[in-house]
């Protein structure tokens, strides 16, 4: 992994955990990992289990942001969520834990727009925003 230039920066870059519900299609794991890598995150832990019917897959994905843009990493996490959310087989993405550190979250447009992230319900999303604040 790329070493951060500034040690204090590293402290702010903690792991984030996503819970993802997806259709249990053969390519879905690769898709999730491909999007995660391409958007600048590395995976520190990953588990995937089919539900009781075998039709759905419950994934838990813990990621760490690479050094691409260190000062806005929490809003970048939301961007990763919206990118994962676009994948056809994915039904739901839930940002389970997010470290705040000293990073200031700027309003990122989501709070203005209930429809900008369709698979989050309103309350989930405002909950998510308020957790950050």
């Amino acid at each position: 992994m790329t070493q951060p230039q500034n040690p204090t920066e590293y402290n702010h870059r903690k792991d984030h955990t996503l819970e993802i519900t997806a259709e249990n299609q053969p390519t879905v794991l690769e898709r999730v990992l491909q999007v995660t890598r391409y958007r600048g995150f590395s995976v520190t832990a990953f588990s995937a289990l089919p539900d009781i019917t075998g039709a759905m897959l419950e994934m838990t994905l813990t990621v760490n942001q690479e050094s691409r843009s260190s000062c806005h990493d929490d809003s970048d996490m939301l961007k990763l969520c919206t990118q994962l959310n676009k994948l056809f087989d994915i039904q739901h993405v839930n940002l389970k834990s997010m470290s705040i550190g000293n990073t200031k979250i700027h309003g990122n447009g989501f709070s203005h727009s209930a429809c900008s992230a369709p698979k989050y319900t309103n309350s989930e999303f405002s909950g998510l925003i308020s957790n950050l604040n």
């Binding site: 961007k79 959310n85 990122n108 447009g109 203005h112 727009s113 900008s116 369709p118």
Partner: peptide
């Protein structure tokens, strides 16, 4: 004011004060 059908474009490179994803 950002109007785009793709939610993932909102805030991707520039903060949107108002986002209309439709």
């Amino acid at each position: 004011i950002h109007m785009d059908i793709d939610p993932a474009e909102i805030g991707k490179r520039r903060h949107a004060d108002i986002a209309i994803t439709d």
